[in-house]
Design a protein around this nucleic acid. Structure first.
Lengths: 232, 232
DNA sequence: GTCATTCGCGAACGATGTTCGCGAACCGAG
DNA sequence: CTCGGTTCGCGAACATCGTTCGCGAATGAC
């Protein structure tokens, strides 16, 4: 008979009904992994490191999780518990932007999240609640179900890309990348790029978080309006 | 003095001016890696496998590439050579959608590309040409340079997410994921989700590639129009 | 021909995800 | 209270990975 390993982790029972009871829980392991990722980045989340964080052996984790990817899925969904989902107000666009605002807040609190959700978009119990809320907000909208699901996926991806740009500003890789772009611009073959780079580097006033948030919400509103408003 | 390793690969000289000449080139190694990824997926692109594909030792690759990530960057940029960039027509939206159409074609030809560009968005010589073209198309548009660069990044991310959904239809992970969503829907606590799933699964007529392409281009046009059209 | 310099690459290092196997721990039945 | 069935914790091992080291061989400039 086929094993139970080949399904999403939330379809497998957490504890066996009989036998020696487990000393830890999925939630406990997930919390340790999230704390570790917050502190040292996603690359530090190895089975051995997480186990050490819990004071156990690496092999023990496989009693709770079939694979490392399962653990990453648990981490992703656990962050979705941080949403506060109020009743729809009737203004679907404003309600969606509010969801986006919270997504941005959560992703900024967990800098590893954008990379994870783009690499493995996954819906666990908490993520499903968010999706249900979004579908409720869009209930009166004339778009099809497929379009609404797509809009939800795109909203997450858009937020992830945006936050990655925000947080990556000081990252070395981005700096080196910028150095290459400046070299290309200086070479002369790409005048539009050269102009764009000097113009984009112009606003020397400190980019407060307030401005970034406004830019994010404005862009998200435009994208969502473009996606979900019926063509005239 | 600081080494030269800590910069984007395209800022380092490909060949030394003196000494024994190299037997291979970056382009050759990149091509081998791309062919391997096309055939067996991105996970198969290890230094040893790529070297074996070329009939050399794994350590030899480090004469051409400082790190595996450098090789991935080369792969990404090499696919950007596949764009055909015609003169702008004057209709910026149509021109941008044409770029998106080509991006989708290229990503479908290289199924590993969406994951790679979302994980490591990078601009090499070919990518820079595409960006220059996009900036040329948007030259008359009243948006700021930062907004245009953001639109370019978002266009790529949007296309990657879309293609990933398209190609992921048959992937096991997506199937298992769908099984979980159906279970949640059947449990009863998420009526909107249940309705959306049944409605989205309804169109039993064969979803030809034509339909997918139209849906992609329509959605992209809406997103871009929302992002780059000045508010009224 | 000499020499500085680079190239190719076998071998090794450290780290990773995962599996195996077994002794210990637990619960319910008798 | 004992015993049997079952699960748990986890040390050890395996395969594989990215990367480094070191040295003989190849090369072009003079």
């Amino acid at each position: 008979m086929a094993g139970r390993q080949d399904m999403v982790i939330w379809m497998r029972p957490e504890q066996a009904a009989v036998g020696r009871p487990a000393e830890r829980s999925r939630a406990e392991i997930t919390a340790a992994a999230v704390a570790l990722a917050d502190r040292e980045g996603l690359a530090a989340v190895s089975m051995r490191r997480v186990a050490a964080e819990l004071g156990t052996g690496a092999a023990s984790l496989y009693r709770y999780v079939a694979t490392r990817d399962d653990l990453l899925d648990l981490m992703t969904d656990s962050t979705a518990a941080g949403y506060d989902l109020p009743e729809p107000t009737g203004d679907w666009l404003a309600d969606l932007v509010e969801v986006g605002r919270q997504a941005r807040r959560i992703m900024r609190r967990h800098p590893w999240l954008p990379a994870l959700v783009t690499a493995r978009p996954v819906l666990g119990p908490n993520g499903v609640d968010v999706l249900e809320h979004v579908l409720g907000v869009l209930a009166a909208q004339p778009a099809g179900a497929a379009a609404k699901l797509e809009a939800f996926a795109l909203m997450n991806a858009f937020t992830a890309v945006f936050v990655q740009h925000e947080l990556g500003g000081g990252e070395p890789a981005t700096r080196h990348h910028a150095a290459y772009l400046r070299q290309v611009a200086a070479a002369g073959g790409h005048p539009r790029l050269a102009a764009a780079l000097t113009e984009a580097a112009a606003p020397a006033d400190g980019p407060a978080d307030h401005d970034e948030a406004d830019r994010y919400e404005a862009a998200l509103a435009r994208v969502l309006a473009g996606l979900l408003t019926p063509p005239r």
